[in-house]
């Protein structure tokens, strides 16, 4: 399994993998918001955490559809499925998700503090947004794995995957933003939504790979 993780991260960081696309997209979304809403610093500070979350959410949907498609095209997926009695397929999916998150989504979390400055979010808010993204984005990847597995046989499944999983990631977005805002807006609490966010991630870390493994099993042709 460590071998699989290393292979996936190595593939993700080699030339042509598009791992930086997400970061650039995130940067683009957040950078144009201040031009769009105007120079009202208080307004920016208030909507800042939400914008960071929406940007990171959309950016982390990019490239999700390639999660299994690349393996299917070169035949690796067949072998990963055949090896199911040695490495449970759900576990294989879990490791692939972790590697995908580490390569494609973790950089988004890493640039969040910088982008938070663009949005005039105060330091505590930036810390909170980064922390909630760190805890919440794995859930998006695990849910996305289900969509990617369902659409694995479709040649242009990219947008379909995003639309399929969007309803499921809404709770993650709600509690992520609620926790991030709770850290700066006084009456709102930080801890309860943050704990629910962590619970969502743990829940989807179990359900997502299991469902994706089932979908891959039945996608055989």
């Amino acid at each position: 399994m460590l071998a699989l993780f290393l292979r996936e991260t190595r593939l993700g960081t080699r030339a042509g993998s598009g791992a930086l696309t997400g970061v650039l997209f995130f940067l683009a979304v957040v950078a144009v918001i201040p031009f769009g809403v105007g120079p009202d610093l208080n307004l920016l500070a208030r909507i800042g955490p939400a914008i960071l979350w929406i940007g990171a959410l959309l950016a982390s949907l990019l490239g999700l559809e390639r999660l299994f498609q690349a393996d299917r095209e070169d035949g690796s997926l067949d072998l990963l499925l055949i090896a199911g009695s040695r490495h449970m397929v759900a576990l294989t999916v879990f490791v692939k998700c972790l590697a995908h998150w580490a390569v494609n989504v973790l950089p988004l979390v890493a640039v969040t503090p910088l982008l938070g400055l663009f949005m005039n979010v105060e330091p505590v808010g930036i810390m909170a947004a980064t922390l909630t993204l760190l805890v919440g984005t794995p859930a998006i990847t695990f849910i996305g794995a289900v969509g990617a597995a369902l659409a694995v046989a479709l040649p242009r499944g990219g947008l379909l995957v995003s639309v399929l999983i969007l309803p499921l990631v809404i709770p993650v977005l709600i509690f992520g933003v609620a926790a991030a805002r709770g850290a700066i807006a006084d009456p709102d609490p930080f801890l309860p939504p943050f704990l629910i966010l962590a619970a969502l991630t743990l829940l989807f870390a179990v359900i997502g790979p299991l469902a994706a493994a089932l979908a891959l099993r039945w996608s055989g042709d």
Binding site: R10, L11, R14, S17, E73, D74, G75, S76, D78, L79
Partner: peptide
Amino acid sequence: GHRNAMKTAL
């Protein structure tokens, strides 16, 4: 199978 199950980037 028909496909070689190898990654072209590695």
